Simulated assay, not measured.
Amino acid sequence: MKRIAIDMDEVMADFNKKHLALFNRDFGEQLTTDDLHGKKLRELRPELVKEIRSYLLDPTYFRDLEVMEHCQEVVEELAQSYEIFVATAAMDFPTSFNAKYEWLKEHFPFIDDQNIVFCGNKSIIHADYLIDDNVRQLERFSGEGILFTSPHNVNVTGYPRVHNWLDVRDYFL
C-alpha cells in the first residue's frame, strides 16, 4: 500500500483564518487572505514579527483551528486505498504538540496515533507522497511532493499543485 504524508497547518487546518483574525483584532487592521498573496503575514508587517510569532507560541493556538473544507471526508476516503500519515513540523513551535495532537484526535479519529509524526525536517518521512504548503519541506522530501495552495505559495512553480481537498481527491482517486 502506498503512503501519503499530509502536512497539518494550511493543509488540513485553516491556520490563516485564525492568525489574521487575531492580528486584525490586536492591531486594528482588516487584512484578508487576499492581502497575503505571495507572502506570509510576517512579510507584510516585518516590524511586528515578534508579535505575530507570539500567537504561535501560545500552547492552545493550534487547538481550535477550523478543518479545511472537505478535508475529513477526503482523508477518510484516501485511507481506504493508501496508508495515511500526518507529518507536522511541530518543532517550529514545540509548545504546539498537545494542541495539535488533540486537534487531530478530535477531527481525524480514524488516523492511528502511530501515523502522526511531529517533526522538523520532513525528509525523514518515508512516504510516496507529501502534501504540503511549504516548498522548503517539498524540496527535502525524497518522494513526490504535492504543493497545497496557500496564499503565501501562489507564485511557486515546479510541483504538482492541488488547490483544495476536492483536487486532492481527484489527484489520488
Rank of each mutant, 00 (worst) to 15 (best):
I131R: 09
Y129R: 05
N134C: 02
D92A: 08
V117H: 08
D133S: 06
D113A: 15
A87S: 15
G145D: 07
L48N: 12
F85D: 01
N16L: 09
Y159P: 01
Y171G: 06
E76A: 04
F15S: 08
Y55P: 12
K40L: 10
T95H: 11
V67L: 03
K2Y: 02
E102L: 13
Y55V: 12
E76V: 00
E10K: 08
P151H: 04
F141Q: 10
R169M: 05
G28T: 09
S123M: 08
H163Y: 07
D9R: 07
L57D: 15
R45V: 03
V168H: 10
S96Y: 04
T157S: 00
H152S: 04
P160T: 09
I116D: 09
N155Q: 14
Y55G: 14
W103M: 06
D113W: 08
D9Q: 03
K39N: 11
N164I: 01
N121V: 07
D35M: 10
E106M: 06
L20T: 06
N115G: 01
S96W: 02
H152V: 05
T60E: 13
M68Y: 07
C119T: 15
E10A: 14
E66Y: 09
V67Y: 05
R3W: 01
T157C: 00
L48C: 12
V11S: 09
L20W: 10
V117I: 15
S81G: 00
I116V: 15
K18S: 12
L65E: 03
L166M: 13
T60G: 01
F172E: 04
M12D: 09
D132S: 06
K39L: 08
E76K: 13
K17E: 15
S150K: 03
L41Q: 05
E76W: 00
R63L: 12
H152C: 03
R45Q: 04
F141T: 14
H37P: 00
T60P: 01
D7H: 05
E102N: 08
K39H: 13
E29H: 12
L31T: 04
K17C: 06
K105P: 03
P109N: 10
R45M: 05
M1P: 09
K40Q: 13
W103C: 02
E29K: 15
P151I: 07
F141A: 07
I124L: 05
L31K: 12
K18V: 14
